[in-house]
Design a protein around this nucleic acid. Structure first.
Length: 478
RNA sequence: GGCGCGUUGGUCAAGUGGUUAAGACUCCGCCCUUUCACGGCGGCAUCACGGGUUCGAACCCCGUACGCGUCACCA
């Protein structure tokens, strides 16, 4: 029996687009809640007004909705512990800052930005805490004089330890910790403060976040301790990397979730792959839909080391998800891509989709794969030479001649009739099926690689166009 | 630089003192086959390094190297 229900939160700041690492954090956060019947909350951390990016908020909502990571509480759906946007909670932070000052866990700092910040960029220094030693009279005098101030955390002496689900027990000397700013001079809280207040007030039991917060977690626990609160369970995740030394980033041109979708990846595939970046399931199965992930997810499988994003493996997942689609669903998805290069209004796009379906890894590959249906490419006759099919230019001449006259005399033009006709012809010529089919396909498509074989291609092209192309091929061969 | 963290094949990774060191992706070969793809079978390739502890270490300890993070009135 769990004493408290699990409550997790995804707390992005609207400062950019939804990156793969963000998505993964959201996913894990969602999975932890859902797998244990808990509540998944969305909170917007917008305390840095200068970093707001237009459209970022929309991207967050859209991505979560597309992925099915539905939140139970949040700015849009409300909930019992709102508001869920930090700038709307400003009064709350002020109130708790006062409380913390009274408790001795914080103090007002009247030093200007320049006095407190390291002036020399080389020198790594921390705030010397001088305002923490001001007497009550001195503080009152500053206050009376209207001196602007920030609120800083008072770090006690000693050592602080905390447990992380992924990294285990981490202990640091408090000397390493700075008296960080909790309330900025604009009155808004820093992440360090808002996060602790909100997580506590919102009853968050499990905090999932990037490992870059590992170093500052002791400060948060000191804050919890000063308030007499119980810290949450921490789950720090290592970053998703673009290569061995760089995190995925927009700056390097790494794709965001929406970029991947625009490239022709399926949401389900992206989600499945992202889940596996830094987490491994107990068994050997790797393919999981979101509901399946809810069933099998276990924080024990989260790994400590960073994971490099591998587009090849994503492609693999994507092609598997595409193949699993119904023919109808695939046709609907593929049609716009087919239409990028196949404009002929009369052509049977369903037949094309059918050929494509098992041969398509990413939707963006489609236009290039089917362009020959619209126009016969200007191909090299070297294509007619294929060792496996036992063809060369001479053989191809014979095959094309025979195929042309056989197809010319065909009354009915459909898959079966063409099939029977060509098979009979191959038998009559005493050649392997491939020896006849190969040159026909090359002449019909003008490409070395095509989705579907000679018969499928010819059926879609239709009688006149097929015969025209076969004659063009025959002519090219001289 | 201080502190923290990390390091199993090219990539994701399983593994918690005794294993032929799983599996997946990629790549290669073969089979299937009307090209390609799918599918099937097989293969290449890994415990960063150096010391310990131990009968025995990928697993425990120490150190080294390399990498990442952090040291903001950013989150």
């Amino acid at each position: 029996m769990t004493p408290t229900t699990i409550r997790t939160r995804f707390a992005p700041s609207p400062t950019g687009y939804m990156h793969v690492g963000n998505l993964r954090t959201a996913l894990y956060t969602y999975l932890i809640a859902r797998s244990q019947g808990g509540t998944f909350i969305l909170r917007i951390e917008d305390t840095d007004q200068s970093r707001q990016v237009e459209g970022a908020l929309e991207a967050i909502y859209q991505t979560l909705a597309d992925c099915g990571l539905n939140h139970d509480e949040g700015p849009d759906v409300g909930g019992p512990v709102g508001p869920y946007v930090q700038t709307e909670r400003q009064a709350l932070y002020g109130e708790y800052a006062e409380k913390l000052i009274a408790l001795g866990g914080a103090y007002r700092c009247f030093c200007g930005k320049d006095d407190a910040a390291p002036s020399d960029e080389k020198a790594i220094s921390k705030y010397d805490g001088r305002c923490g030693r001001l007497s009550a009279e001195e503080i009152q005098a500053k206050l009376d004089a209207g001196t602007p101030y920030v609120v800083r955390q008072r770090i006690p002496a000693g050592r602080t330890a905390f447990d992380d689900v992924v990294f285990g027990c981490i202990e640091v000397d408090n000397d390493e910790l700075d008296d960080g700013v909790l309330i900025k001079s604009d009155g808004l809280p820093t992440y360090n403060f808002a996060n602790v207040i909100d997580d506590h007030l919102m009853g968050i039991t499990h905090v999932v976040r990037g490992s870059e917060y590992l170093s500052s977690t002791p400060k948060y626990n000191l804050l919890y301790a000063a308030f007499g609160w119980t810290p949450p369970i921490y789950i720090h995740c290592s970053p998703v990397m673009r290569d061995a030394t760089h995190k995925m980033s927009k700056r390097h041109g790494d794709p965001s979730y929406e970029d991947l979708i625009a490239m022709g990846y399926l949401t389900e595939a992206v989600l499945n792959y992202v889940a596996l970046l830094g987490w491994s399931p107990a068994g050997e199965e790797e393919m999981f839909t979101l509901p399946e992930l809810v069933k099998v997810f276990d924080v024990k499988g989260i790994s400590k080391s960073p994971a490099i994003f591998d587009m090849d493996k994503l492609r693999h997942f994507n092609s598997a998800y595409i193949r699993a689609l119904t023919p109808e669903a695939f046709h609907t998805l593929a049609l716009p891509y087919i239409r990028q290069t196949v404009t002929n209004a009369d052509i049977d796009t369903r037949a094309i989709a059918e050929l494509l379906h098992q041969r398509c890894e990413v939707l963006n590959d489609i236009p290039e794969k089917v362009d020959f249906f619209d126009a016969l490419p200007d191909y090299d006759i070297a294509l007619y030479t294929n060792k496996k099919s036992k063809t060369d230019e001479t053989v191809s001449r014979t095959m094309l001649d025979a195929a042309i006259s056989a197809l010319e005399s065909l009354d009915e033009w459909n898959k079966d009739s063409i099939h029977d006709c060509l098979m009979a012809l191959a038998a009559e010529l005493e050649v392997k099926n491939a020896t006849l089919m190969y040159p026909v396909r090359i002449a019909a498509a003008g490409k070395a690689v095509t989705p579907g074989g000679a018969i499928e291609v010819c059926v879609i092209l239709g009688r006149d166009e097929t015969l025209r192309r076969l004659r063009v091929g025959r002519e090219k061969l001289g």
